[in-house]
Simulated assay, not measured.
Amino acid sequence: MTASPFAQQFRASPDLLAQSLDAGGDRVLVARMAEADYAKASFLDQRILTQDRPCQWFGWEELEAASGRLPATAQHIFHIGHVGSTLIARLLGELPGVFALREPALLRGLAELQRVRGRPESPWSPERLDERIGIALGWLSRTYRPQQHALIKATSFVSDLAPAILAQGEKALFLYVRPESYLATILAGEASIQELGALSGTRLLRLHARIEAEPWRLWNLSLGERAALGWACEMSALEQAAGAAATGQVLWLDFDEFLTRPAEALAACAAHFGQPLGEEQAAALTGGPIMTRYSKAPEHAYSPQLRRDVIAQAAREQAGEIGRGRQWLADAARDFPLIARALDRVARGEY
């Protein structure tokens, strides 16, 4: 049977993006994109759904039948949030062999289902969830040219899917910073503090599920302790995923270390993903305009020095809350080995 024109186009090109999931309706929103749209977008979420972008809902099974089982060959960047993941994805996306996708909403929807995996309220069985994660990764692995490899920069909480994604066999970069840098970054600005308020409850649920205990109550945690909770939640997700990864499958990178020697670090990331990047090209990329703009909103100027200044100011002004957060982490590490392993990893330095 000849495939329909839609099925042929969907299989052949990322021009039709499986953008987001409606789990209750068991359907997927497909949005029409161009290669330039991917290069421009910092987030492949609702922010790309402008009035002039053609979109259409398809039943999951209908889209699955049209696409067939595409190979899940995408590589990934997982991270703890506010650690330069968008910047590094943009830099790597400049390489001819990389097709970068930043924060696809489809994976966010699947990560939300992962949190209710096996529970009575889950719309999918665990087996169906695992199967559909692989199918979705196939959809997101399509590229514009045969020599390209898809590189997905995930949203931080999508790290809950990292074990299932790494089971596909492809490589990943794990980005983090030390707790003191993370706490100062989060407490430095109004927007990140608001984000902290929005995410802390879910992070506590995720962390409690991961450590299989419920020792903390959100209402008892100060602002600095909630920021520490965020670090512990996202770092323990990466730590747990690393425990199931094959040797050499994961490269850990401290973003603060990246900023001290960006050309060398970028070359190491490219090599990890099997992408050639010479010293001169790495220096040109890390010395170019991408490093001088705010990666999530390139219309705004930004720089490593500005980041250092903001963190230093927050370290002074929020010293009390940062101290409370660091003490919370120390206490948590004494009781829970997974958090202790995460702290030990950053103390050793992985890159």
Rank of each mutant, 00 (worst) to 15 (best):
S236T: 13
Q240M: 12
S222W: 11
I290R: 13
A244K: 14
A270T: 06
F255N: 02
Q249H: 08
L285R: 02
P262D: 02
F255P: 00
P262R: 01
G248T: 09
M291A: 13
Q275C: 14
A245E: 03
V250L: 08
S222I: 13
D254E: 11
F273E: 03
P262N: 05
G243E: 11
G278R: 03
E234F: 07
E264V: 13
A241W: 00
I290K: 10
A241C: 09
T286H: 03
M291K: 10
A237V: 07
T247Q: 15
E279Y: 05
A242P: 00
Q275T: 13
E257R: 15
G230N: 13
Q249C: 08
A232W: 03
E279I: 10
C233F: 04
E280M: 09
D254K: 03
A282K: 00
A227W: 02
P276C: 07
A270L: 05
E257N: 12
A242S: 13
A228L: 06
A241G: 04
I290D: 12
S222A: 13
C269A: 13
L229E: 03
A271M: 13
G288R: 07
L251I: 06
T292V: 04
A244C: 12
F273H: 11
A244E: 14
E257A: 15
I290T: 14
F255S: 02
C269G: 04
L266F: 06
L259E: 11
E279K: 11
A245W: 02
T247R: 15
G224Q: 07
A270I: 06
I290Y: 08
F255A: 04
A244F: 10
L285A: 07
L229I: 11
T286E: 02
E239P: 07
L253G: 01
E225A: 04
F273N: 01
W252N: 01
F273T: 06
T247E: 15
A241V: 02
Q249M: 07
A284S: 14
L277I: 09
G248K: 08
L251F: 09
E234V: 07
L259T: 09
L253E: 06
D256K: 09
A241I: 01
A242Y: 01
L238I: 08
P262I: 01
P276M: 07
T292I: 00
G288Y: 03
A232M: 10
Q249G: 06
Q281D: 15
A282S: 06
F258K: 03
R226V: 02
R226E: 01
A232I: 06
H272Q: 15
T260F: 08
A271F: 12
A227K: 00
A283P: 02
E279H: 09
T286V: 07
G288T: 07
A227Y: 01
A271L: 14
E234Y: 08
A265M: 11
D256Q: 14
G278I: 06
L229C: 08
G287L: 10
A228M: 05
L229Y: 01
E225G: 03
R226L: 05
A244P: 00
R226D: 02
F258I: 07
E279A: 15
Q275G: 08
H272F: 09
E280R: 12
M235C: 12
A270M: 05
E264G: 10
Q281I: 07
A245S: 12
C269W: 02
M291P: 08
E225H: 03
F258Q: 04
P289E: 14
G287D: 11
A242G: 10
P289L: 09
A228E: 03
A245R: 03
R226W: 03
L285M: 11
